[in-house]
Design a protein around this nucleic acid. Sequence first.
DNA 1: TACAAAAACTAATAAGCATTAGTTTTGCAA
DNA 2: TTGCAAAACTAATGCTTATTAGTTTTTGTA
Lengths: 196, 196
Amino acid sequence: MAKIKLGKNVTKKEVITQTAAVLFKKKGYGSTSMRELAEALGVEAPSLYNHIGSKSELLQVVCFKVANAFTSYLDTVENNLTSNVYILEKIIRFHIQMMLNNFDEVYVANHEWKHLKEPYLSNFLIQRRGYEKRLVVLMETGIKQNEFKDVNPYVSVLTILSSVRGLEFWQQHKKNISSQVLEDDMVNHLLNGIKK
Amino acid sequence: MAKIKLGKNVTKKEVITQTAAVLFKKKGYGSTSMRELAEALGVEAPSLYNHIGSKSELLQVVCFKVANAFTSYLDTVENNLTSNVYILEKIIRFHIQMMLNNFDEVYVANHEWKHLKEPYLSNFLIQRRGYEKRLVVLMETGIKQNEFKDVNPYVSVLTILSSVRGLEFWQQHKKNISSQVLEDDMVNHLLNGIKK
DNA sequence: TACAAAAACTAATAAGCATTAGTTTTGCAA
DNA sequence: TTGCAAAACTAATGCTTATTAGTTTTTGTA
């Protein structure tokens, strides 16, 4: 009876996927039923299968959309050669903006990837490890070129990625601090700790 | 037939809870069945109910054990009055050690608390927010007393807590770097960014 | 207005879940 | 060795789940 509502230039599958991301974030993948998802869309559960293949497909789409966004950004920023410090700053800012503007999807990719089915699970982990490794190389290069202190590059990358990821706890304070102050404070805190 | 094996000074309930923590971490609370837990203990599922009340009770025990450990440590370290910088350093080191030495339980408390039932869910969140608030006050005091730069205290606390939490991704590199190097590097990275 | 495709619906399936009830086995103390 | 409590077992219950099959309604187009 009720139909899935469409915005502009958005397929029904995309609407379903976005709604799924909201629910997966709120309740977790395993605890979100197709009935709940259907209800959120104003539809009966089996109707969803006219548009999607399976529940786990929804998770795959969300996780790889996020992973690909980060990988693509790193590609472009690495090609514009400047200092390693500046590249790193741009990456940190991109991570922060992704956390603030695509919160549901990033959260799901960070927390629910474990429920991916093979071979997607393995591919996701390979892609993520590759991304981290590229950041480590960036840090190592910066250390050699005397831009960064002589820290352990793994520890630094880990610290940076984790800090940014922690913005998921930020939602509650959103009203008190502008996202620009947040972004600048966080960039300074993280870069001042390692810059020479 | 098979009995649950006991170590020294450990009740059967504690053995079950610890095993549950390992499984909850590996597969998530919702995707861990009582059958799997029982199998890991060499027992049939209904036998578990001779020792525990319910599946969700297991999650409660894990989450509050972790939460109480952090709260207690903050109590003791706050009573030994020294500089705010030094207190903060001790707290960071405690967090790191908890991540390294009680990984399964801390991970579960960080990731699976969402599945707690009321009123435990609310209590857990209240306790966590209270803990964070105490750290913010510590940071504010340190700023007033000119120990820290004039940063936003919420952002700094968030950055620190998130970085430490990110040690969950550390397991894979464990072999390459000693935990002492890790701890010192991370403390320096985080404190150098905000110390005056 | 009629037709065809898209997308909704209802009904059903088979599997998995936590948990309870009732029974048997185990292990310790007298 | 006997007896009792603790702790295991088997069997069953009732519920929820993702998904499929088959049917009807809706919608856009000729």
